[in-house]
Design a protein around this nucleic acid. Structure first.
Length: 577
RNA sequence: GCGGUCGUAGCUCAGCUGGAUAGAGCACCAGACUACGAAUCUGGGGGUCAGGGGUUCGAAUCCCUUCGACCGCGCCA
C-alpha cells in the first residue's frame, strides 16, 4: 500500500501546525498555483492568523521551520502574506514512484465500503436508444469500474423503462396495425423497425385523440393487473426491443449484471401499496393515491409522490419505490450500502420524491440513495442534439458515424493492424472521452468533428501516448533490455512521476464526487507529461545504460497508470495505432 | 409565478469548502522530424471571469440585485 503523496504532505503539514500550537482542521495542501512556487502550497496560515490574531507570516515561518526538518521536503518557503510553498525532495518523489510501480494497484487505496448497486435508469423499451442514453451508459460503466478498482463490489442493473403508459401505447398501436392477429399473438409478429415506426405515431396519436389515449391507458392498466394477452404481447415486444438495444450496449462495452426493469417491481407494488395504505402513509388525493414527501425546510414544498393514478395504474415513482423495497429484501443485494442512480439531472425532483418516500416509509433503512445526475448532450447550436434532419439522433447511427470518421483518420499502413478493430477502439474512445472528460452535471456539446480531430484533449491523444509507451517497451523487450528502478534526473522525468503519483488522489476524488472527469483529468496530465518526457528524454537511445534502464522503468509506470485510467473510463488501449 | 442549474479567451471547457500575475484544449502566429512513432513537442498573442453592489487583508469563488440562457414544478417515463 502506498500512501498518496498528497496525503503524506497533508500529514506532515498537520503535524507541523500542531507542533506550532495551532488547530489543524483546515490545514491541507493544494497543488502549487505556479511551478516556480514548488509542488504544493498551503494557505492555512492566513486563515489561522485571523482567528488567532497573529501575523500569518509568523505562523507560516514557524511551521516552515518545523517542516524543514522533514526529509520529504527539498524546500519550504514563506511567500507573500503567509503562503507556504513546498518543494518535495527528489529522493522522496523517487521512492514514492518506485513504490507505486511496485504496487499491484498502483497505489490506489482499497475501500472497505459495502457493495454498491448502480441503477442506470434504463431505456424505454418502446424506443431505440438515442443520444441521451449515451451518458448513462458511459458514466455508469465508468463509475462501476472506478468502484471495482478500489475493491468495492458493484452490481449493475439496467432498470428498463418497460411498465408504463408507453407500453400501453405501443401495444395498442401494434394491435391496430395487425387486426388479423389475435391479441396475445401480435407482439411476436413485430420487428424492431416496425416498432420504431409505430411508437412515435402512437405517441402523437394519443396526445391528439382522447380515444386513443383512453385505449392506451386501458391496456396499460390491463397489463399491470395481469391480463394474459396484454402480457404476452408486451413480453414479445420487450424481448425484441431489448435484443436490439443490446447491440448498442454491447458495442459501448457497458456490462449489466441485471436486466431488470420497472415490470419486475409489479409483484412488490401489489403488496407494498396496500401496506402503505394500511399504515396511513398513502392516501387518496384528487382520485390518485399519494404519499406526502414535503418537509418543513423546503423552500417550496415538494409535490407528493403518486403511487397510483386515478385509473389505478402505477407510475414510475411507484415502481422505483417498490424496486428499492425489493432490493432491500433481496438476499443477493442485502449487503449493499448504497443505490446509485445514474440518470439525467432533469429527473432530480423525481428521485428526491422517491428517496424521501422511501425514508418516510421505512424502506431500505440504512441504505444511501444517491441520484448521480448528468446534463444533456447538446448539438453545436447548444440545444439538445439532433440529426441534420432535425430528428432524434439514434445512438447506433452516431456510433457508426464516429467509427467511420475514425477509420478515415487512421494513418498507419501497418498490414498487421486490423483497421476495423482499431477504428472501433479509437472512434468509441473519442466519443466516451468527450462525455467523461467534462463535468457530469453540466451538459456538453457533442461535436463529432472536434472530438475526432484526435488532437489535444481527446481520447485518441491519450491512447496514442499509451501506444507509444507500449512501443518502447516492446522494442526494449525484443532487444533484451530490462528496466531497473525509477530514477529522476531530468525535470521531465520528475514531472511525469509526479503526474503518475496523482492517480490515487484522482481515484478518491472521482469516487467522492461520482466524477469520472477526475480520472480523465489525471490521464490527460500523465499523457501530456509523458509526451513532453518523450520529446526531451531519449529512452532506448539514452546516454548510458543506467539512464536507459531507469527510464524504461518510468515508462513502465506511466504505461500502467495510463492503462489503468483508461480502463476505469471504459476506453480500450490499442496495441498499435 | 415558484424552484433549480448556469453565464470565464474567437470556440469548447477547467478552476468555485475565498489566496499570489485566472488555466487547458482547439483555432491563430512562429519554431522542432537523416530523431525511441510529428495523432507529437516548444514558444507567442488573446480575458471588464454577464452587469452592478456588498462582506473580506484578499472574491471567478460567499451574500444581495439586474440582465440573459437552460431545466423542473401531482396523475408521461
Amino acid at each position: 500500500m502506498v500512501d498518496s503523496v498528497m496525503g503524506r504532505v497533508d500529514d506532515l503539514l498537520r503535524q507541523a501546525f500542531a507542533a506550532a500550537g495551532l488547530p489543524t482542521e483546515a490545514v491541507r495542501s493544494v497543488p502549487a498555483s505556479k511551478p516556480e512556487f514548488g509542488d504544493f502550497q498551503c494557505n492555512a496560515a492566513m486563515a489561522l492568523g485571523k482567528a488567532a490574531k497573529r501575523n500569518p507570516r509568523d505562523i507560516a515561518a514557524a511551521v516552515a521551520e518545523i517542516l524543514r526538518a522533514s526529509p520529504e521536503f527539498a524546500a519550504v518557503d514563506v511567500a507573500g502574506p503567509g503562503f507556504l510553498n513546498l518543494r518535495l525532495a527528489d529522493a522522496f518523489v523517487t521512492a514514492r514512484a518506485r513504490a507505486q510501480a511496485a504496487s499491484p494497484d498502483l497505489g490506489i487505496v482499497r475501500r472497505d465500503d459495502p457493495p454498491v448497486l448502480i441503477d442506470f435508469g434504463g431505456p424505454n423499451v418502446a424506443k431505440p436508444l438515442h443520444v441521451g442514453h449515451l451518458r448513462s451508459l458511459v458514466i455508469g460503466e465508468a463509475l462501476s469500474r472506478i468502484f471495482a478498482a478500489q475493491g468495492v463490489a458493484v452490481t449493475t442493473d439496467i432498470h428498463l423503462g418497460d411498465w408504463g403508459l408507453q407500453m400501453g401505447m405501443l401495444i395498442a398501436a401494434i394491435r391496430r396495425a395487425h387486426p388479423e392477429r389475435a391479441p396475445g399473438t401480435v407482439g411476436e409478429a413485430v420487428t424492431v423497425d416496425e416498432m420504431q415506426r409505430l411508437y412515435p405515431e402512437a405517441s402523437a396519436a394519443c396526445k391528439a385523440e382522447p380515444e386513443r389515449m383512453a385505449e392506451a391507458r386501458a391496456l396499460t392498466a390491463a397489463l399491470q393487473s395481469g391480463d394474459p394477452q396484454a402480457f404476452a404481447d408486451w413480453s414479445a415486444l420487450r424481448a425484441t426491443s431489448l435484443a436490439d438495444q443490446r447491440h448498442d450496449i454491447d458495442r459501448l462495452g457497458t456490462r449489466f449484471d441485471l436486466f431488470l426493469g420497472e415490470s419486475d417491481a409489479q409483484a412488490i407494488v401489489d403488496t407494498l401499496v396496500p401496506n402503505l395504505v394500511a399504515r396511513g402513509l398513502a392516501y387518496e388525493s384528487d382520485g390518485a393515491l399519494v404519499i406526502d414527501v414535503a418537509e418543513g425546510s423546503d423552500a417550496k414544498p415538494l409535490p407528493p409522490l403518486i403511487l397510483a393514478k386515478s385509473d389505478g395504474a402505477a407510475t414510475y415513482g411507484t415502481t422505483d419505490l417498490a424496486t428499492i423495497a425489493g432490493r432491500a429484501t433481496d438476499p443477493a443485494l442485502a449487503r449493499c450500502g448504497r443505490y446509485v442512480y445514474v440518470v439525467d439531472e432533469r429527473q432530480s425532483l423525481h428521485f428526491n420524491q422517491v428517496f424521501r418516500a422511501a425514508r418516510r416509509c421505512g424502506i431500505a433503512p440504512g441504505v444511501d440513495l444517491v441520484h448521480v445526475g448528468f446534463g444533456t448532450v447538446n448539438g453545436v447550436d447548444g440545444k439538445p442534439y439532433r440529426t441534420r434532419e432535425g430528428g432524434v439522433a439514434r445512438l447506433r447511427d452516431l456510433l457508426a458515424e464516429a467509427v467511420d470518421k475514425a477509420r478515415g483518420r487512421i494513418e498507419t499502413d501497418d498490414p498487421a493492424i486490423d483497421r476495423d478493430v482499431l477504428a472501433e477502439q479509437v472512434g468509441l474512445a473519442a466519443v466516451k472521452w468527450a462525455d467523461l472528460s467534462t463535468l457530469r452535471l453540466s451538459g456538453y456539446s457533442f461535436n463529432l468533428d472536434r472530438m475526432m480531430s484526435f488532437e489535444g484533449n481527446t481520447g485518441p491523444y491519450i491512447q496514442y501516448a499509451c501506444v507509444r509507451i507500449g512501443a518502447i517497451g516492446a522494442k526494449a523487450d525484443a532487444a533484451g533490455l530490462r528496466p531497473s528502478a525509477i530514477a529522476l534526473g531530468h525535470p521531465a522525468e520528475r514531472a511525469l512521476a509526479m503526474a503518475c503519483l496523482r492517480l490515487p488522489v484522482a481515484v478518491a476524488a472521482a469516487t467522492a464526487g461520482y466524477a469520472p472527469n477526475e480520472i480523465a483529468d489525471l490521464a490527460f496530465a500523465v499523457a501530456q507529461a509523458f509526451s513532453r518526457f518523450y520529446a526531451e528524454c531519449p529512452v532506448l537511445n539514452a546516454e548510458d545504460e543506467e539512464a536507459r534502464a531507469a527510464r524504461l522503468a518510468l515508462c513502465g509506470l506511466a504505461h500502467a497508470v495510463l492503462s489503468k485510467a483508461l480502463w476505469m473510463l471504459g476506453i480500450a488501449v490499442p496495441q498499435r495505432m
